[in-house]
Design a binder for these strands. Structure first.
Length: 132
RNA sequence: UGACCAAGCAGGAUGGCAGCGGGCACAGGGAGACCUGUGCAUGAGGAAAGUCCGGGCUUCACAGGGCAGGAUAGCUGCUAACGGCAGCCGAAGGCGACUUUAGGGACAGUGCAACAGAGAGAUACCGCCGGAAUUUUCCGGUAAGGGUGGAAAGGCGAGGUAAGAGCUCACCGGGGUGCAGGAGACUGCACUGCCAUGUAAACCCUAUCCGAAGCAACACCGUGACCGCAGAAGGCAGAGGUGGCCCGCCGCUCCUUCGAACGACUUUGUCAUCGGUCUAUGUGGCUUGAACCGUCGAGCGAUCGCCGGUCUAGAUAGAUUGUCAUCAUAACAGAACCCGGCUUAUUUGCUUGAUCACACC
RNA sequence: GUGGGUAUGGCCUAGUUGGUUAGGGCGCCAGAUUGUGGCUCUGGAGGUCGUGAGUUCAACUCUCACUACCCACC
């Protein structure tokens, strides 16, 4: 993996949690948001709820492997954060590929973006700004 | 054949496709830092875990003294060191192979032992015996019997006695002294003779050991911010350092005296240099080490020595995978400065050596 | 990486120089009171004191190991 294509800072993760759109599946939760770099960046979150260190590492590997299969066939210029869930440990990356494809295509299509910008999410983000 | 005891090993394998980490070589691009591609070999564990001990390494402190505080606890050895390991001693358990064991000191001192019980470290409640009185009772002797309790002036038998008592004796147990053996813990024998319980994982005493903090240490490059402008002598007012505290010691600031004086522009500030403090980011630290493998030798063993060979992860959101097939079915589980232990988690298979029981020869 | 703390009925807690009744409040159940309900009063049930060993005559308390949760510092 390229170092430039990963999200590392807590600030960047928070940006996605507050501003980005989300899609939920029993295996994985995806957040997505546009960036202006012209390439895709990903961040992976695995909490201690999932298991011990071995399980958490396995989750990261599976998600990364699935993303590399999906990456060439999708639109560039997006940030993604993937959150592993308890069942991700038992899954195989081939099971994860169709899930990711569906979620990403839903999130990156322009229709959903319009819907979201007019929704509650924007109000929330405004409130956060006021507080800060 | 079955049961049981001890020690040890293995810790998925093979192939196809796609892919990751750092290293080396080559090629291309670039002023350079570096980037891209190809090839080669290589890339997590027995516990990597818990962080319970010990050490290396680094920095701070290193004129000295005292007081606290912590750790360990049979003996001898091994080790860089240890609270670890080996062998032995004692104690406990097992028919046995063998296993377990925080195992110094309670005549240095202090404390505690609820309830029950007459009495808990000092005692006569009932009982027994003797005497006085002879209705009750009183005085003395007595720890054999009763009851209480975890624990009641060693246990048990015999002699002895008014009744009893280590009062005397045999056996067992404990203490002391002497002799013998052993490197020592200790063991054996002889004599003496029963000396007031338990608790030190209560305070404590004795012996030995311990400076503190940690790779986010620390060093370098260097960004930004702030502070400062020569020195000498004395005073010892203030705040520090000596990483627990105190004494003592050592600087710094401050005050007094002496004395000197501003690089540039300007005019009482700004900038630059130099020095100091803190700090973003990056690089090093980072893997050749009390290393691993093998032969031989010393030792009961832990372990040590000689010789030969090998180089065997070094990441920085953290690399060993995904998937397919076959076999096996397999758990616990992922290095982050590095070693030696301990503890805990863990499945299956195998090997070796012993013990007991049964059967057969 | 280093250091520290907590665990007690369903919930919040007290208790520890070791001593045998583990206490209290809220909640729960039953009864009384009321025409009924609440409030109030009376009574009751409910505890492997986080788990496992050890020291002791005796452990919620002392020691060791483990589990879960929480906190602090760099």
């Amino acid at each position: 993996m390229d170092k430039k294509t990963t999200l590392k800072l807590n600030k960047e993760f928070k940006r996605l949690y507050f501003k980005g759109k989300s899609a939920v599946h029993p295996l994985i939760v995806t957040y997505a948001c546009k960036n202006r770099l012209g390439r895709n960046r990903i961040g992976i979150t695995v909490t201690k709820k999932v298991g011990k260190a071995v399980c958490r590492n396995r989750c990261k590997r599976i998600i990364r492997a699935a993303f590399y299969q999906v990456n060439p066939s999708i639109e560039q210029g997006w940030d993604f954060v993937f959150v592993a869930r308890a069942r991700t440990t038992q899954a195989k990356s081939t099971e994860l590929v169709p899930v990711l494809k569906k979620q990403i295509s839903n999130l990156t299509s322009p229709d959903s973006q319009k819907r979201d910008t007019t929704g509650k999410r924007q109000q929330k983000s405004v409130k956060k700004k006021d507080k800060s």
